[in-house]
Design a protein around this nucleic acid. Structure first.
Lengths: 153, 153
DNA sequence: ATACTACTTTGAGTTTACTCAAAGTCAAGG
DNA sequence: CCTTGACTTTGAGTAAACTCAAAGTAGTAT
Protein backbone atom coordinates (compact mmCIF):
# COMPACT_ATOMS: atom_id res chain seq x y z
CA UNK A 1 0.00 0.00 0.00
CA UNK A 2 0.90 3.66 -0.46
CA UNK A 3 2.28 2.98 -3.88
CA UNK A 4 3.90 6.28 -4.99
CA UNK A 5 2.61 5.73 -8.55
CA UNK A 6 -0.91 5.83 -7.22
CA UNK A 7 -0.31 8.57 -4.65
CA UNK A 8 -0.02 11.31 -7.24
CA UNK A 9 -2.97 10.20 -9.29
CA UNK A 10 -5.15 9.13 -6.42
CA UNK A 11 -8.44 7.44 -7.10
CA UNK A 12 -11.25 6.64 -4.72
CA UNK A 13 -13.93 4.04 -4.27
CA UNK A 14 -17.53 5.18 -4.16
CA UNK A 15 -17.50 4.96 -0.37
CA UNK A 16 -14.42 7.20 -0.18
CA UNK A 17 -15.86 9.63 -2.70
CA UNK A 18 -19.08 9.72 -0.71
CA UNK A 19 -17.23 10.48 2.52
CA UNK A 20 -15.10 13.18 0.88
CA UNK A 21 -18.03 14.95 -0.77
CA UNK A 22 -20.61 14.53 1.95
CA UNK A 23 -22.98 12.57 -0.25
CA UNK A 24 -24.42 9.13 0.18
CA UNK A 25 -23.04 6.50 -2.23
CA UNK A 26 -26.62 5.98 -3.45
CA UNK A 27 -26.82 9.64 -4.31
CA UNK A 28 -23.58 9.52 -6.31
CA UNK A 29 -24.98 6.60 -8.32
CA UNK A 30 -28.24 8.46 -8.73
CA UNK A 31 -26.40 11.55 -10.02
CA UNK A 32 -24.54 9.41 -12.51
CA UNK A 33 -27.78 7.73 -13.66
CA UNK A 34 -29.32 11.17 -14.07
CA UNK A 35 -26.41 12.45 -16.15
CA UNK A 36 -25.06 14.96 -13.63
CA UNK A 37 -21.86 13.02 -13.41
CA UNK A 38 -20.13 11.69 -16.50
CA UNK A 39 -16.99 9.82 -17.28
CA UNK A 40 -16.68 7.97 -14.00
CA UNK A 41 -14.23 5.18 -14.82
CA UNK A 42 -14.72 1.56 -13.86
CA UNK A 43 -12.29 -0.96 -12.55
CA UNK A 44 -14.12 -4.13 -13.43
CA UNK A 45 -17.70 -3.19 -12.65
CA UNK A 46 -16.83 -0.77 -9.86
CA UNK A 47 -16.78 2.97 -10.02
CA UNK A 48 -13.43 4.69 -9.54
CA UNK A 49 -13.41 8.40 -8.71
CA UNK A 50 -10.51 10.68 -9.66
CA UNK A 51 -9.69 14.07 -8.16
CA UNK A 52 -11.23 15.62 -11.25
CA UNK A 53 -14.45 13.68 -10.64
CA UNK A 54 -14.48 14.99 -7.06
CA UNK A 55 -14.12 18.53 -8.40
CA UNK A 56 -17.10 17.90 -10.67
CA UNK A 57 -19.08 16.72 -7.66
CA UNK A 58 -18.16 19.79 -5.66
CA UNK A 59 -19.27 21.97 -8.57
CA UNK A 60 -22.62 20.20 -8.45
CA UNK A 61 -22.80 21.00 -4.75
CA UNK A 62 -22.00 24.61 -5.51
CA UNK A 63 -24.72 24.92 -8.14
CA UNK A 64 -27.26 22.95 -6.13
CA UNK A 65 -26.73 24.94 -2.92
CA UNK A 66 -27.14 28.15 -4.85
CA UNK A 67 -30.55 27.00 -5.98
CA UNK A 68 -29.98 25.42 -9.37
CA UNK A 69 -32.28 22.42 -9.92
CA UNK A 70 -30.70 19.10 -10.88
CA UNK A 71 -32.36 19.34 -14.27
CA UNK A 72 -30.48 22.57 -15.06
CA UNK A 73 -27.22 21.17 -13.72
CA UNK A 74 -27.74 18.20 -16.00
CA UNK A 75 -28.17 20.51 -18.98
CA UNK A 76 -24.98 22.32 -18.07
CA UNK A 77 -23.11 19.02 -17.78
CA UNK A 78 -24.49 18.00 -21.18
CA UNK A 79 -23.17 21.25 -22.69
CA UNK A 80 -19.75 20.61 -21.20
CA UNK A 81 -19.76 17.13 -22.71
CA UNK A 82 -20.37 18.65 -26.16
CA UNK A 83 -16.98 20.35 -26.00
CA UNK A 84 -15.50 23.74 -26.76
CA UNK A 85 -18.22 24.78 -29.21
CA UNK A 86 -20.62 25.24 -26.26
CA UNK A 87 -18.42 27.66 -24.33
CA UNK A 88 -20.57 30.67 -25.25
CA UNK A 89 -23.66 28.92 -23.92
CA UNK A 90 -21.92 27.85 -20.75
CA UNK A 91 -20.67 31.40 -20.21
CA UNK A 92 -24.18 32.73 -20.65
CA UNK A 93 -25.59 30.15 -18.28
CA UNK A 94 -23.01 30.90 -15.58
CA UNK A 95 -23.46 34.66 -15.95
CA UNK A 96 -27.20 34.30 -15.51
CA UNK A 97 -26.72 32.06 -12.54
CA UNK A 98 -24.26 34.46 -10.94
CA UNK A 99 -26.78 37.27 -11.31
CA UNK A 100 -29.49 35.07 -9.86
CA UNK A 101 -27.30 34.22 -6.87
CA UNK A 102 -26.57 37.92 -6.34
CA UNK A 103 -30.32 38.59 -6.33
CA UNK A 104 -30.83 35.77 -3.89
CA UNK A 105 -28.10 37.04 -1.56
CA UNK A 106 -29.69 40.48 -1.48
CA UNK A 107 -33.08 38.98 -0.79
CA UNK A 108 -31.89 36.69 1.98
CA UNK A 109 -29.95 39.58 3.54
CA UNK A 110 -33.11 41.64 3.74
CA UNK A 111 -35.05 38.69 5.13
CA UNK A 112 -32.38 38.28 7.78
CA UNK A 113 -32.99 41.87 8.84
CA UNK A 114 -36.60 41.02 9.39
CA UNK A 115 -35.67 37.93 11.41
CA UNK A 116 -33.33 40.02 13.55
CA UNK A 117 -36.16 42.46 14.13
CA UNK A 118 -38.19 39.51 15.43
CA UNK A 119 -35.32 38.59 17.73
CA UNK A 120 -35.30 42.12 19.10
CA UNK A 121 -39.08 42.02 19.43
CA UNK A 122 -38.97 38.88 21.57
CA UNK A 123 -36.07 40.19 23.65
CA UNK A 124 -38.16 43.27 24.33
CA UNK A 125 -41.17 41.09 25.09
CA UNK A 126 -39.17 39.18 27.70
CA UNK A 127 -38.32 42.42 29.52
CA UNK A 128 -41.56 44.32 29.06
CA UNK A 129 -44.26 41.93 27.94
CA UNK A 130 -45.39 41.57 24.35
CA UNK A 131 -45.50 44.95 22.63
CA UNK A 132 -48.73 45.50 20.72
CA UNK A 133 -48.21 44.46 17.13
CA UNK A 134 -51.13 46.62 16.13
CA UNK A 135 -48.84 49.61 15.83
CA UNK A 136 -46.19 48.17 13.59
CA UNK A 137 -44.78 51.53 12.55
CA UNK A 138 -44.18 52.68 16.12
CA UNK A 139 -42.48 49.37 16.84
CA UNK A 140 -40.23 49.71 13.81
CA UNK A 141 -39.36 53.28 14.76
CA UNK A 142 -38.37 52.14 18.25
CA UNK A 143 -36.28 49.30 16.83
CA UNK A 144 -34.48 51.75 14.61
CA UNK A 145 -33.90 54.13 17.50
CA UNK A 146 -32.62 51.46 19.85
CA UNK A 147 -30.50 49.43 17.50
CA UNK A 148 -29.54 51.92 14.82
CA UNK A 149 -30.50 49.22 12.31
CA UNK A 150 -33.17 49.58 9.70
CA UNK A 151 -35.82 47.18 8.51
CA UNK A 152 -38.39 47.49 5.80
CA UNK A 153 -41.43 45.37 5.20
CA UNK B 1 -68.36 50.97 -2.94
CA UNK B 2 -65.27 52.60 -1.46
CA UNK B 3 -66.92 52.83 1.93
CA UNK B 4 -64.58 54.92 4.14
CA UNK B 5 -65.33 52.65 7.12
CA UNK B 6 -63.84 49.78 5.21
CA UNK B 7 -61.01 51.77 3.68
CA UNK B 8 -59.04 52.07 6.92
CA UNK B 9 -59.51 48.46 7.96
CA UNK B 10 -59.18 47.00 4.52
CA UNK B 11 -59.86 43.35 3.96
CA UNK B 12 -59.17 41.24 0.92
CA UNK B 13 -60.60 38.26 -0.87
CA UNK B 14 -58.37 35.25 -1.34
CA UNK B 15 -57.71 36.32 -4.94
CA UNK B 16 -56.58 39.77 -3.78
CA UNK B 17 -54.47 38.32 -0.98
CA UNK B 18 -52.91 35.92 -3.47
CA UNK B 19 -52.05 38.74 -5.85
CA UNK B 20 -50.62 40.91 -3.06
CA UNK B 21 -48.46 38.15 -1.60
CA UNK B 22 -47.41 36.44 -4.80
CA UNK B 23 -48.97 33.13 -3.84
CA UNK B 24 -51.56 31.08 -5.61
CA UNK B 25 -54.99 31.07 -3.88
CA UNK B 26 -54.65 27.28 -3.64
CA UNK B 27 -51.41 27.71 -1.74
CA UNK B 28 -52.99 30.10 0.76
CA UNK B 29 -55.73 27.57 1.42
CA UNK B 30 -53.11 24.86 1.73
CA UNK B 31 -51.12 26.93 4.24
CA UNK B 32 -54.25 27.43 6.29
CA UNK B 33 -55.08 23.71 6.20
CA UNK B 34 -51.52 22.96 7.30
CA UNK B 35 -51.72 25.36 10.22
CA UNK B 36 -49.26 27.93 8.93
CA UNK B 37 -51.98 30.51 8.79
CA UNK B 38 -54.48 30.89 11.61
CA UNK B 39 -57.39 33.12 12.40
CA UNK B 40 -58.41 33.90 8.84
CA UNK B 41 -61.96 35.26 9.20
CA UNK B 42 -64.88 34.19 7.04
CA UNK B 43 -67.64 36.19 5.47
CA UNK B 44 -70.18 33.46 4.95
CA UNK B 45 -67.97 30.63 3.75
CA UNK B 46 -65.36 32.84 2.13
CA UNK B 47 -62.01 33.76 3.53
CA UNK B 48 -61.37 37.39 4.34
CA UNK B 49 -57.76 38.54 4.74
CA UNK B 50 -56.79 41.51 6.92
CA UNK B 51 -53.57 43.51 6.74
CA UNK B 52 -52.38 41.58 9.78
CA UNK B 53 -53.02 38.31 7.94
CA UNK B 54 -50.98 39.62 5.03
CA UNK B 55 -48.13 40.41 7.41
CA UNK B 56 -48.32 36.85 8.73
CA UNK B 57 -48.10 35.60 5.15
CA UNK B 58 -45.09 37.75 4.41
CA UNK B 59 -43.41 36.40 7.55
CA UNK B 60 -44.00 32.90 6.21
CA UNK B 61 -42.34 33.98 2.96
CA UNK B 62 -39.43 35.36 4.92
CA UNK B 63 -38.91 32.14 6.88
CA UNK B 64 -39.49 29.91 3.90
CA UNK B 65 -37.10 31.78 1.60
CA UNK B 66 -34.44 31.60 4.27
CA UNK B 67 -34.72 27.85 4.25
CA UNK B 68 -37.11 27.04 7.07
CA UNK B 69 -39.30 24.05 6.22
CA UNK B 70 -43.09 24.46 6.44
CA UNK B 71 -43.13 22.02 9.33
CA UNK B 72 -40.90 24.28 11.41
CA UNK B 73 -42.88 27.36 10.44
CA UNK B 74 -45.99 25.53 11.57
CA UNK B 75 -44.40 24.82 14.95
CA UNK B 76 -43.49 28.47 15.31
CA UNK B 77 -47.05 29.51 14.45
CA UNK B 78 -48.36 27.02 17.00
CA UNK B 79 -46.09 28.57 19.67
CA UNK B 80 -47.38 32.01 18.79
CA UNK B 81 -50.94 30.76 19.17
CA UNK B 82 -50.13 29.56 22.70
CA UNK B 83 -49.55 33.14 23.76
CA UNK B 84 -47.03 35.09 25.80
CA UNK B 85 -45.79 32.10 27.81
CA UNK B 86 -43.97 30.83 24.70
CA UNK B 87 -41.96 34.00 24.09
CA UNK B 88 -38.73 32.45 25.38
CA UNK B 89 -39.11 29.54 22.98
CA UNK B 90 -39.90 31.81 20.07
CA UNK B 91 -36.88 33.97 20.88
CA UNK B 92 -34.67 30.91 20.96
CA UNK B 93 -36.09 29.67 17.67
CA UNK B 94 -35.58 33.02 15.95
CA UNK B 95 -32.04 33.37 17.30
CA UNK B 96 -31.12 29.95 16.01
CA UNK B 97 -32.68 30.70 12.67
CA UNK B 98 -30.84 34.01 12.40
CA UNK B 99 -27.55 32.22 13.03
CA UNK B 100 -28.46 29.59 10.46
CA UNK B 101 -29.23 32.28 7.89
CA UNK B 102 -25.91 33.97 8.61
CA UNK B 103 -24.15 30.63 7.98
CA UNK B 104 -26.09 30.20 4.80
CA UNK B 105 -25.23 33.69 3.56
CA UNK B 106 -21.53 33.03 4.12
CA UNK B 107 -21.77 29.72 2.30
CA UNK B 108 -23.66 31.09 -0.68
CA UNK B 109 -21.22 34.02 -0.88
CA UNK B 110 -18.32 31.63 -1.18
CA UNK B 111 -20.18 29.52 -3.74
CA UNK B 112 -20.81 32.68 -5.73
CA UNK B 113 -17.08 33.28 -5.84
CA UNK B 114 -16.64 29.89 -7.42
CA UNK B 115 -19.38 30.62 -9.95
CA UNK B 116 -17.69 33.92 -10.82
CA UNK B 117 -14.45 32.05 -11.32
CA UNK B 118 -16.29 29.86 -13.82
CA UNK B 119 -17.53 32.98 -15.58
CA UNK B 120 -13.96 34.25 -15.85
CA UNK B 121 -12.82 30.83 -17.03
CA UNK B 122 -15.32 30.81 -19.89
CA UNK B 123 -14.56 34.42 -20.80
CA UNK B 124 -10.91 33.44 -21.02
CA UNK B 125 -11.84 30.36 -23.04
CA UNK B 126 -13.68 32.54 -25.56
CA UNK B 127 -10.56 34.63 -26.12
CA UNK B 128 -7.89 31.97 -25.87
CA UNK B 129 -9.53 28.59 -26.13
CA UNK B 130 -10.26 26.38 -23.14
CA UNK B 131 -7.45 26.58 -20.60
CA UNK B 132 -6.33 23.18 -19.38
CA UNK B 133 -8.23 22.31 -16.23
CA UNK B 134 -5.51 19.86 -15.33
CA UNK B 135 -3.51 22.57 -13.66
CA UNK B 136 -6.17 24.02 -11.38
CA UNK B 137 -3.70 25.80 -9.13
CA UNK B 138 -2.07 27.68 -11.99
CA UNK B 139 -5.49 28.67 -13.24
CA UNK B 140 -6.53 29.94 -9.81
CA UNK B 141 -3.28 31.88 -9.48
CA UNK B 142 -3.90 33.54 -12.83
CA UNK B 143 -7.48 34.37 -11.86
CA UNK B 144 -6.24 35.96 -8.68
CA UNK B 145 -3.60 37.93 -10.56
CA UNK B 146 -5.96 39.18 -13.23
CA UNK B 147 -9.02 39.96 -11.16
CA UNK B 148 -7.56 40.65 -7.73
CA UNK B 149 -10.28 38.36 -6.38
CA UNK B 150 -9.69 35.21 -4.44
CA UNK B 151 -11.36 31.82 -4.62
CA UNK B 152 -10.87 28.73 -2.58
CA UNK B 153 -12.04 25.22 -3.29
C1' DA C 1 -84.45 37.46 -10.78
C1' DT C 2 -81.01 35.30 -13.11
C1' DA C 3 -76.58 34.51 -14.95
C1' DC C 4 -71.89 34.48 -14.09
C1' DT C 5 -67.98 34.19 -11.44
C1' DA C 6 -65.36 33.37 -7.65
C1' DC C 7 -65.53 30.79 -3.92
C1' DT C 8 -66.01 26.43 -1.01
C1' DT C 9 -64.44 21.44 0.44
C1' DT C 10 -62.41 16.89 -0.16
C1' DG C 11 -59.29 14.17 -2.03
C1' DA C 12 -56.22 12.78 -5.48
C1' DG C 13 -52.11 13.80 -8.39
C1' DT C 14 -47.46 15.96 -9.40
C1' DT C 15 -42.59 17.23 -9.05
C1' DT C 16 -38.08 17.12 -7.08
C1' DA C 17 -34.65 14.82 -5.05
C1' DC C 18 -33.56 11.31 -3.13
C1' DT C 19 -33.54 6.52 -0.59
C1' DC C 20 -34.22 1.80 0.02
C1' DA C 21 -34.89 -3.02 -1.06
C1' DA C 22 -34.26 -7.26 -3.47
C1' DA C 23 -31.65 -10.55 -5.76
C1' DG C 24 -27.85 -11.91 -7.62
C1' DT C 25 -22.73 -11.24 -9.16
C1' DC C 26 -17.89 -9.87 -8.56
C1' DA C 27 -13.29 -8.62 -6.72
C1' DA C 28 -9.71 -7.39 -3.26
C1' DG C 29 -7.56 -7.43 1.33
C1' DG C 30 -6.44 -9.77 5.64
C1' DC D 1 -10.48 -18.62 1.27
C1' DC D 2 -13.69 -15.94 3.05
C1' DT D 3 -15.61 -11.72 4.55
C1' DT D 4 -16.59 -7.26 3.24
C1' DG D 5 -17.88 -4.02 0.37
C1' DA D 6 -19.15 -2.92 -4.25
C1' DC D 7 -21.43 -3.82 -8.39
C1' DT D 8 -25.72 -4.46 -11.45
C1' DT D 9 -30.92 -3.71 -12.59
C1' DT D 10 -35.56 -2.96 -11.51
C1' DG D 11 -38.76 -1.07 -9.07
C1' DA D 12 -40.90 0.73 -5.17
C1' DG D 13 -41.21 4.18 -1.39
C1' DT D 14 -40.69 8.71 0.84
C1' DA D 15 -40.97 13.65 2.06
C1' DA D 16 -41.84 18.28 0.96
C1' DA D 17 -44.48 21.51 -1.16
C1' DC D 18 -47.58 22.27 -3.86
C1' DT D 19 -51.43 21.78 -7.62
C1' DC D 20 -55.50 20.30 -9.73
C1' DA D 21 -60.16 18.22 -10.29
C1' DA D 22 -64.90 17.70 -9.19
C1' DA D 23 -69.02 19.04 -7.44
C1' DG D 24 -71.45 22.18 -5.15
C1' DT D 25 -72.54 27.27 -3.17
C1' DA D 26 -72.57 32.12 -2.41
C1' DG D 27 -72.06 37.00 -3.77
C1' DT D 28 -72.17 40.52 -7.56
C1' DA D 29 -73.56 42.51 -12.16
C1' DT D 30 -77.23 43.37 -15.19
Amino acid sequence: MNNPDKAHQAVYTIAQAARKTGYDAETLRYYEREGLLRGIARKGARRVYTEENLRAISLITCLKKTGMPLKAIKEYVALTARGEKTVAKRLDLMRRHSREVARQLAEVTSFKERIDFKVWYYETAQREGLPAVADVDALLARYRRETGRNVSF
